[in-house]
């Protein structure tokens, strides 16, 4: 693996390998000394053209626990709104000797352009691009699903296992969701069955080519599919306004049709778990009852995110053998504002 741009690029063996490695990483994180020396001397740049403190901190934590040097390059709100600046920024990072660039960008395909533009030799990790992909989110979701739903509810060793036979419902703004796109492809690769649930306005034209079923009715989808997991997507409130596209009439109507509340939670199979990529709009796509219930694994997703991102950075930059050492390392942090 040279870059991680899209879950579509992963075959089942590669995907399982990342999940297994994440499992090993998670094990090291249970120790008193969490830091591994694996990436000592390597530089990871977090290049964020779009605000996302959560994702940036997750990658930063992952890189530091592998003893990499971390540079946070925040390009938002600066001169970096015009075209060529992605190129200029890439050349700057190349000059700094970045071994990996973790990029978050508002434009779909920007990580692809960065990886293939000939501007940088480092590995590129897509940390979310426009409405295209967010592969580490899908990987951490898959890791979470495997932990809970494969091998007797999670305590057995699940390494080497995929998600064959699991049913997952993904609910909400599929049209604008890179989380949905990443998950549909990865879950399909791992053998799970996906049902997308959304009002028709929030389903992309062309979805018929996706390896997923589409339903416009959440209650029906729950009754018919009996999903093992339900993944609630964030819905931006501005989508309902005319200026935002007028995708649905009101938040209330959305919540009535597609929100996960106590009643719908109760209608799920007993073992089913609830995921959300965060940040949540409580009261819109998910009620407090559902978000805070014992079925929700939303907080655990955050912790799993660090392990998965450690695994990705490790496999991209160190490759080869699994980590065993728990030797503490040192990291330096540099902040650069562009």
């Amino acid at each position: 693996m040279r870059h991680l741009l899209s879950t579509a690029d992963l075959d089942v063996a590669e995907a399982v390998r990342i999940l297994d490695t994440a499992g090993q990483m998670a094990a090291t994180q249970a120790r008193e000394i969490k830091k591994l020396p694996t990436l000592r001397g390597r530089t990871v740049v977090n290049l964020f053209f779009e605000d996302s403190t959560r994702t940036r901190i997750s990658f930063e934590t992952a890189a530091k626990r592998l003893s990499a040097d971390v540079i946070n390059f925040s390009a938002k709100g600066s001169s970096v709104s015009k075209g060529e600046s992605l190129k200029d920024t890439a050349l700057t990072l190349q000059a700094m000797g970045a071994d990996a660039v973790v990029i978050r960008h508002h434009a779909s395909g920007a990580p692809h352009t960065l990886a293939h533009g000939g501007w940088t030799t480092g590995s590129v990790v897509n940390a979310g691009d426009g409405t295209h992909q967010h592969p580490t989110q899908a990987l951490l979701d898959a890791y979470t699903l495997r932990r809970h739903l494969v091998g007797d509810g999670g305590r057995a060793d699940v390494s080497g296992r995929d998600l064959t036979g699991l049913r997952v419902a993904i609910v909400g703004d599929v049209l604008h969701s890179r989380v949905a796109r990443s998950n549909v492809q990865l879950l399909h690769t791992l053998g799970a069955e996906v049902t997308l649930v959304a009002p028709p306005t929030l389903v992309p034209v062309g979805v018929e080519a996706w390896p997923a079923r589409v339903s416009y009715h959440l209650d029906e989808a729950i009754a018919d599919d009996k999903p093992d997991a339900i993944m609630m997507l964030r819905v931006q409130r501005e989508r309902m306004s005319s200026a935002g596209g007028g995708f649905f009439p009101s938040p209330l109507e959305y919540t009535r049709g597609y929100g996960l509340d106590a009643r719908r939670l109760a209608s799920l199979p007993e073992h089913a778990i609830v995921l959300h990529p965060g940040p949540m709009n409580r009261g819109l796509e998910i009620s407090a009852d559902a978000a805070d219930s014992s079925r929700a694994v939303i907080v655990e997703q955050v912790a799993n995110g660090v392990a998965v991102r450690m695994a990705v950075l490790y496999l991209l930059l160190a490759g080869g053998d699994a980590p065993t050492s728990s030797q503490p390392g040192t990291t330096n942090e540099t902040k650069v504002d562009a």
Partner: peptide, 18 residues
């Protein structure tokens, strides 16, 4: 709009030009 709206735009996450 960024590209033809259809199967490819749906996958690439580029806004469709129907």
């Amino acid at each position: 709009a960024q590209m033809h709206e259809g199967v490819v735009s749906a996958e690439l996450g580029l806004a469709g030009w129907p």
